[in-house]
Design a protein around this nucleic acid. Sequence first.
DNA 1: TTGTAGGCGTTATCAG
DNA 2: CTGATAACGCCTACAA
Lengths: 353, 353
Amino acid sequence: MSEVEIASGATRINKPARSAKPSPTIYDIGKVAGVNPSTVSRALSKPGRVSVKTRKLVEDAAAQLGYQVNPFARALPTGRTSTLGLIVADITNPIYLDIVRGTESTALGQDYTLMLADSAETTQTELTAARRMMPFVDGLILVSPCMDDTRIHELAGEKPLVVINREVNDVTCVVPEVNKGIGEAIRSLVVNGHRKIGYVAGPPQSWMSKRHWDGVQAACDWSKLESVRLESDRPTVDGGRRVAREVVSSGATAVLTYNDILAIGLMQELQAASVVVPDEISIVGFDDMFGADFTTPPLTTVRSPMLTCGKEAARLVLNLLNGEVHSTPILHVDTELVLRGSSGRLSSGRLLT
Amino acid sequence: MSEVEIASGATRINKPARSAKPSPTIYDIGKVAGVNPSTVSRALSKPGRVSVKTRKLVEDAAAQLGYQVNPFARALPTGRTSTLGLIVADITNPIYLDIVRGTESTALGQDYTLMLADSAETTQTELTAARRMMPFVDGLILVSPCMDDTRIHELAGEKPLVVINREVNDVTCVVPEVNKGIGEAIRSLVVNGHRKIGYVAGPPQSWMSKRHWDGVQAACDWSKLESVRLESDRPTVDGGRRVAREVVSSGATAVLTYNDILAIGLMQELQAASVVVPDEISIVGFDDMFGADFTTPPLTTVRSPMLTCGKEAARLVLNLLNGEVHSTPILHVDTELVLRGSSGRLSSGRLLT
DNA sequence: TTGTAGGCGTTATCAG
DNA sequence: CTGATAACGCCTACAA
């Protein structure tokens, strides 16, 4: 019978880089198990729709041959790849580490593979990354995306999509509820004698920065404190250093900053100018990123549970994939104040220019 | 003609989660451009083997339809996915950030997508991650792998593979040449009056830790210094703290540590015990990871150019993919001392228990 | 230069 | 419960 030739016949286009031996297919299994390839497929993908003994036959043959499904061949008819895409603004930023880890862990738990990309904080590269991933993945997770809502909707229309760290209408989002953490921070500052609170903002277009500032204002109003907003040019260590002078002259005795990196730069510059932290100025960051406790004093910060965000986001995409629709597509996760050394009691009168 | 129905006829198995509109195929392009699908394929993948005007016709139609290749359909006949796999020991460790960034940048530059996984520092998960990725990628990069050489050879036999941070026989590797940086560090310590140097080792099975220790010994011998090896139980901040007592009692006035995290923990504990760094003990880390300069004093460290490692590794896999064979499969990249505040002159006599 | 035809490995439909 | 057969979208000899 020429049937024997089915799987191995013809010239093989696919040239594995080194090993000459092509991987076994369901046809090969079919041959050794003595059943039709389609039965092999069934036995392997939906056991239960096949007799017990056929199943065993197939499984044994598969094991013996060291069979592994070809994900591409499978993806073609099903359209499913068992892969999730994750795009973060900047892989270099440790803040995102826990998100990656979180999504990875639940993805793997559900037998999904993760595909990761970095947008280099640019709308353009973010978009290309998304476009490039789109055909590969079953669903996509965007972390702190900078593309506009329209683009996000566009993507969300094509595949299940979840956004972390930003709220977009009609799109499933996971966002830290910063007000709780901010409230805790402000209360802690109040009892330590502070009366004027500064907020060093992040990038102008940052959704989260706006959120912070709203929260700070609200909390200050409630506690009858004065609040003042400072601008940083970039959310980096240097950006933090450059805003130091302004912070001092603002008259605020305590400042919250858009993120921990900014806080660290600010603290470094203040200390270089012999301003004692926290005695003269208290500093509170955001995120509790890796390294926030390396400083002296260690940084007080509002922690966002990024690991949880990552896990939840992955869970939500997977739900979306299974056809679930989220009536309230916004998932809030709690933030909390991590009290360390960079904030505390305001010592006596502080009189600087 | 029923030809119009070619692409849209029949029931569509592939059900996109939401949008009803299926992505356009080369058949669709063929219809609007008025040419055969195969011509479309050629025009798109190998322009030049097609007339200029057909090409333009096809490109316009493709653009108009917003066509994107289906990577799976392409992978099936060609066996190529334009995807590179990267497995790092621990995504949570900032040391690997630059590697990710490096590989990502050259991968993207060559129109390759990156697939990232974390091995959680476990041989088992590392292996499953590799296995899981293998069918998806054209090539694989392993960073500080913990699996044994046999496994690595196995994988290298299946697809192009490059290892970072470890040397494996007959496998293309990119490793930092630590001796240069260590030499600089030891010389700097010598001129600052140090006579006994400690090395706080990392995990016993770590290839790099052994390498460090060899280098430290050699450099100390050469400079006629005494060297002593200390063991840490874990390469973490806490591990660093726990080894502090031993460091002090060892009599070394300067120590190098397996990595920066260990150095930071060690420094924190010493400072907590009122040991002044660097006046009483100098500390030198390895890697120059993110945050190494957040400490007070900022950490002196031997920097490995991880970004370069990542880029080179990606370049090498790509070469391998193109059939190049590396006669000397080990690529060494230079390390250098980054002199900061945690190391320096030994002040007068130090007499601690 | 372009069209035709067959195959890549898997799943789904439809008879048997 | 199982076998044949037709997609899935793309690529590439081969023929025109």
